[in-house]
Amino acid sequence: MDKKRIVNDIILVVALLALALAAWGVIRITHKSGDYAVVEIAGEETARYPLNEDIRIDIEAEGGHVNTFVISDGKAYVESADCPDKLCVKQHAVSRVGETIICLPHKLVIRIVGEGGVDTAL
C-alpha cells in the first residue's frame, strides 16, 4: 500500500465524517420543539396526542402486536413492545418536530409534529 493511497483514504474518511456531521447539524437546526405525537400504522395516521398531557396507552399495530406508548414531561417514548428487536424501546424519547420512533416490524411510526400538524422535517 503506497503513501498516496493512504492519504486519499484519510481524505475520504474525513469527508464521510464531515457528511455525517453536516447531516446531523441540518437535522438539529431544522428541528423545533413539537406539540403533538402522531401515531401512524402502515403509513396511516391513527391517533394524535398532545405532548403536554401525560398518557400511557397500548397501541395495537399490525397483526395484533402491541407497543406501550407513553407521554411524560412533554416527551414521547415506547415503554415496551412485543416485537423481537425492541429497537423502538431503545430509541430515545422524542419531543422535537420531525423526530420519530419507528418500529419496523409493526410498521408503527410515532412522529412529533408542530402546532396544526405542520411537519417541517426533512
Partner: peptide
C-alpha cells in the same frame, strides 16, 4: 429502501448515525 417501503421521510433522521457507523 426504508423510505420507499414505509413511505416515511423521517427515517432519514438516522442518516448521520448510519454514515458514522458505516465509516
Amino acid at each position: 429502501m426504508a423510505v420507499i417501503l414505509m413511505g416515511v421521510g423521517e427515517i432519514a433522521y438516522w442518516f448521520p448515525m448510519l454514515v458514522l457507523s458505516g465509516t
